[in-house]
Each structure stands twice: as structure tokens, then as C-alpha cells.
């Protein structure tokens, strides 16, 4: 009875759970001996945190009814600076303490640039009234263009060894460092969304920004802050990507933009705003990563099979959800009206 109640209230979560189970069962049957090994799960734990963090960041944007397409390009731009700085200042033979200080500064540089980038996005959207898709696509082109111009399209290397070592270390002897960072960020974001005034406001803004403004709340400030948070959290993802790649480049992770949006949509967090639950996000992330890793276990399949399955999965979810009560993916009339009137 209790379960039935839960299932009714959380139809979407249940659907994702069923999907996760289906994916697990499928790969257990076909590649059980490979799937249920420590190596397989370690591999997954190393892979997903970088785009997992980006997804987590962009989630804030989606909840407020905005969208960010610039996060990967911004992250690349920021890390190019940071890697250059670190490469220049942590010369071989420098003391550990010095290298550590350089790394911390490098991370701070990345985050500072991300903060500025997020702020610009926010200002373009709120103060100038540019539709968020457009503003952030344009900024994506700008950041990527700048990165290309500064690096002449080359890979930026010379990271201190310590940086990549940290990236591959294990916390408490078993927890991969990227996963550790992801878990901390996830808990932090979940707490922010659930238990802060800011978290309450972003859901309300995503549903009807005008009503929130008319309640005496500075919505522009909240939205700008949201773009900043998005940029910062996904910037952490970029930092992890840099440690995996041991370098930075203008076009690293370019497929992540679409993947992140796909995960969010799969999790029922739509750019329409005001929707979505954080646990669903985790489920969607895990599903996507298991598919990616599962596909890898078939020697005959290339990685694009994962893309095939992801696409199919998203479409199935889209169509299935039209049968659920609420039909969250349907074109929303009120939203459309709002857009027209704000044009």
C-alpha cells in the first residue's frame, strides 16, 4: 500500500528505476562476467564524474527555466588558462609545497573564469533579455573561438604530475577521487535545492518568473547567481576532465553538451523550468554510464552504440511519459503564451 502510494506520487522515479533494472539485467545476462567486476565499476566511477558534475551544474539552469550550452566551452577556456599557469609555474624539481600552491591557484583561476563566464550569461539573459538558448550558444562560440585562437588549436600540456596523481588517487583507499568530488558536490547541490531559500526560489522562478518578481524578489539576481553556480559546478567537472586527459584543449568534451542535456531530460528535468527531482538525476546518470560501459564490454561494438541506445531510450521515455499523468514533456500552453507575451 505504501509502495503503491509512493509509486503513484513518483511515477517518473519508478519508471527510471524500472529502466535501470532493465539495463542491469540486460548487461548481466549478456556480459555478466564483465559487468560484475570491481574493474568495471571502478572504470565507471572514473568516467562519469566529469560530465556528472556538468549535469549537476546545468540542472540549476534548467530548474529556473533557462538553458546553458556554453559550459563545456567555458570550462575549456578556463582550464586552458589554468594549465598554462600551472605548467609555467610548477617547474620540474620544485618543492611539493610549491607545486601544491600552484595547483590550488590554478584551480582558483579556473573557478574565477567560470564565475565571470556564468555572470556574463546571466547578464545577457536577465538584463538584456536575450533568450537563454541564443545567449549561451553565442557565448559558447565566443569561448571556444577564444580558446582556439589562444592555443592555435593545439593541446596545452605540462600539467604538474601531482595534479594528475591526485585525479587518479583513491580517497580512504577505495573511493576514486573524481567520484569523491562528485559525491560531495551532489550532496551539496541536493541540500541547496532542497533546504535553502535559493532552492525554493529557483523552482518558483522556473514556473513563473514574473510572479516571483511581483512578490518582491530580485529574480534577476537569482538567475544570474544560477548561471554562476552552473558555470562553477561544471567548471569542477572540467578540472576533472583535465586531470583525466592530462592536458587542456579548445574542443575537449564537445559531445558533453548534448549528453548533459540528454541526461537532464531523461531525468525529467526540463528546460521549461520548475520541474525535476535530484534523485532522478542520479538515476539517469547511472543509467547513461552503465549503458556506455556495458556497450564497451562487447568487443564488436564501438562506442557509438551507446549513443544509439541513449537516443532510443530518450525517445521511449518521451513517448511513454505522454501516457503518464501530467505528461511533462508535452508542449505547455501556458509556457508558450508566456514566451509570446515576453517577446
Amino acid at each position: 500500500m505504501k509502495f503503491k502510494n509512493f509509486a503513484n506520487k513518483n511515477q517518473y522515479t519508478v519508471m527510471l528505476l524500472v529502466m535501470l533494472a532493465a539495463v542491469l539485467v540486460f548487461f548481466s545476462i549478456t556480459r555478466g562476467s564483465l559487468l560484475w567486476t570491481g574493474d568495471a565499476w571502478y572504470g565507471m566511477a572514473m568516467q562519469f564524474p566529469e560530465y556528472g558534475l556538468m549535469t549537476l551544474g546545468v540542472m540549476f539552469c534548467f530548474i529556473t527555466g533557462n538553458i546553458d550550452m556554453s559550459f563545456v566551452a567555458l570550462g575549456n577556456f578556463a582550464t586552458i588558462f589554468a594549465v598554462r599557469y600551472m605548467a609555467a609555474n610548477a617547474a620540474e624539481g620544485a618543492s611539493d609545497g610549491h607545486v601544491r600552491a600552484v595547483i590550488v591557484t590554478g584551480i582558483l583561476i579556473t573557478l574565477l573564469i567560470c564565475l565571470i563566464g556564468g555572470f556574463i550569461n546571466g547578464v545577457l539573459v536577465t538584463k538584456l533579455g536575450i533568450p537563454p538558448v541564443m545567449a549561451t550558444i553565442a557565448m559558447q562560440l565566443v569561448w571556444q573561438g577564444l580558446s582556439t585562437a589562444l592555443t592555435q588549436g593545439n593541446t596545452v600540456t605540462g600539467l604538474p604530475a601531482m595534479y594528475t596523481e591526485i585525479g587518479h588517487s583513491k580517497m580512504f583507499g577505495f573511493l576514486p577521487f573524481p567520484l569523491f568530488i562528485f559525491i560531495i558536490a551532489f550532496i551539496l547541490c541536493a541540500l541547496i535545492v532542497r533546504y535553502t531559500v535559493y532552492g525554493e526560489m529557483i523552482y518558483m522562478i522556473g514556473t513563473n518568473v514574473k510572479a516571483v518578481r511581483y512578490s518582491g524578489i530580485n529574480t534577476d539576481r537569482v538567475v544570474i547567481l544560477t548561471f554562476v553556480i552552473t558555470a562553477l559546478v561544471s567548471g569542477v567537472g572540467s578540472l576533472i576532465m583535465v586531470s583525466t586527459m592530462a592536458s587542456a584543449k579548445a574542443d575537449y568534451g564537445s559531445s558533453y553538451v548534448m549528453r548533459v542535456i540528454l541526461i537532464l531530460v531523461l531525468a525529467g528535468i526540463l528546460p521549461d523550468g520548475g520541474m525535476g527531482k535530484i534523485p532522478d538525476l542520479l538515476l539517469a546518470l547511472v543509467i547513461i554510464q552503465i549503458i556506455a560501459s556495458g556497450v564497451n564490454m562487447f568487443a564488436s561494438l564501438n562506442t557509438y552504440y551507446a549513443s544509439l541506445i541513449w537516443g532510443a531510450l530518450l525517445l521511449i521515455v518521451l513517448i511513454a511519459s505522454t501516457k503518464l499523468s501530467g505528461g511533462i514533456f508535452k508542449i505547455r500552453d501556458d509556457k508558450k503564451k508566456k514566451q509570446v507575451s515576453s517577446q
Binding site: Y195, T196, V197, Y198, E200, M201, Y203, M204, T207, N208, K210, A211, V212, Y214, S215, G216, I217, G274, D334, K337, K338, S341
Partner: peptide
């Protein structure tokens, strides 16, 4: 379009203008 967040709970709408009264330091 201006008064309510229709697709949000009644309770949250009622408290929208006075969130500072039911929170402390942003929590």
C-alpha cells in the same frame, strides 16, 4: 501570468513573499 506559480504547491505560493520569515540564514 503575474500572481501565481500555477504549477507549484499552494503552500509555497502563499509563502513566496515571506520566505525570510520561515528561514534562517538562507536555510
Amino acid at each position: 501570468t503575474e500572481g501565481l506559480c500555477m504549477r507549484q504547491p499552494i503552500a509555497d505560493n502563499i509563502m513566496l513573499a515571506s520566505l525570510d520569515k520561515v528561514s534562517r540564514r538562507g536555510i
